[in-house]
Amino acid sequence: MKKPFSAQIFTVTIMVMLGLFSGINFAFAQSNNPGPKIGIKGGLNLSQLYVDQPNVENESMKMGIHFGLFSKIPINNYVALQPEVLYTNTGSKVSYGGSDFENVFGIETGEIRFNLNYVQVPVALAVNLGPLNVHAGPYLAYLLSANVKDWKSSETSPTQVRELDTKDFNKIDYGLVIGAGFDIKAVNVGARYNYGLRNVGKEGLAGNLTDNSKNAVVQVYLGFGF
Score class of each variant (00 low, 15 high):
Gly196Ile: 09
Thr109Cys: 10
Val218Glu: 05
Gln8Glu: 13
Gly181Leu: 05
Met17Tyr: 07
Asp150Val: 07
Ile112Leu: 04
Phe67Arg: 02
Val177Met: 08
Gly179Ser: 04
Lys171Gln: 14
Ser157Glu: 14
Phe21Arg: 02
Thr88Leu: 11
Leu46Gln: 05
Pro131Met: 12
Ile184Val: 14
Ile178Asn: 05
Ala124Asn: 15
Asn45His: 07
Ser95Trp: 00
Ser92Thr: 10
Tyr174Pro: 02
Gly35Asn: 03
Tyr142Thr: 09
Lys152Arg: 14
Phe224Tyr: 09
Lys167Gln: 12
Ile73Asp: 05
Pro131Ala: 11
Thr11Asn: 12
Asp165Tyr: 02
Tyr174Glu: 09
Ile14Asp: 02
Thr109Asp: 13
Val187Asp: 04
Pro54Cys: 07
Lys3Ile: 02
Lys62Gly: 03
Gly97Ser: 14
Ser60Gln: 14
Val189Pro: 06
Gln219Arg: 08
Val119Cys: 06
Leu209Ile: 01
Thr109Ile: 11
Asp173Pro: 01
Val217His: 02
Asp183Thr: 13
Val94Thr: 12
Val127Pro: 06
Lys171Val: 07
Glu203His: 11
Pro34Gln: 06
Phe105Asp: 06
Asn77Met: 09
Ala141Leu: 01
Asn194Ala: 14
Lys93Gln: 11
Asn55Thr: 12
Glu59Pro: 03
Phe226Ala: 11
Gly181Val: 04
Met15Val: 13
Pro74Gln: 00
Ser154Val: 06
Gly225Ser: 15
Gly35Ala: 13
Leu20His: 00
Asn117Tyr: 00
Ala29Trp: 09
Asn194Val: 11
Phe224Leu: 08
Glu111Gln: 15
Ala29Ser: 15
Val121Trp: 01
Tyr193Met: 10
Asn25Thr: 14
Pro158Trp: 04
Thr13Pro: 00
Phe5Gln: 05
Ala216Ser: 15
Lys41Pro: 00
Phe226Glu: 09
Leu197Thr: 01
Lys37Glu: 13
Tyr139Met: 11
Ala206Trp: 05
Phe105Ser: 07
Asn115Gly: 12
Ser153Gln: 08
Phe101Met: 11
Gln160Phe: 08
Gly91His: 08
Ile178Gln: 07
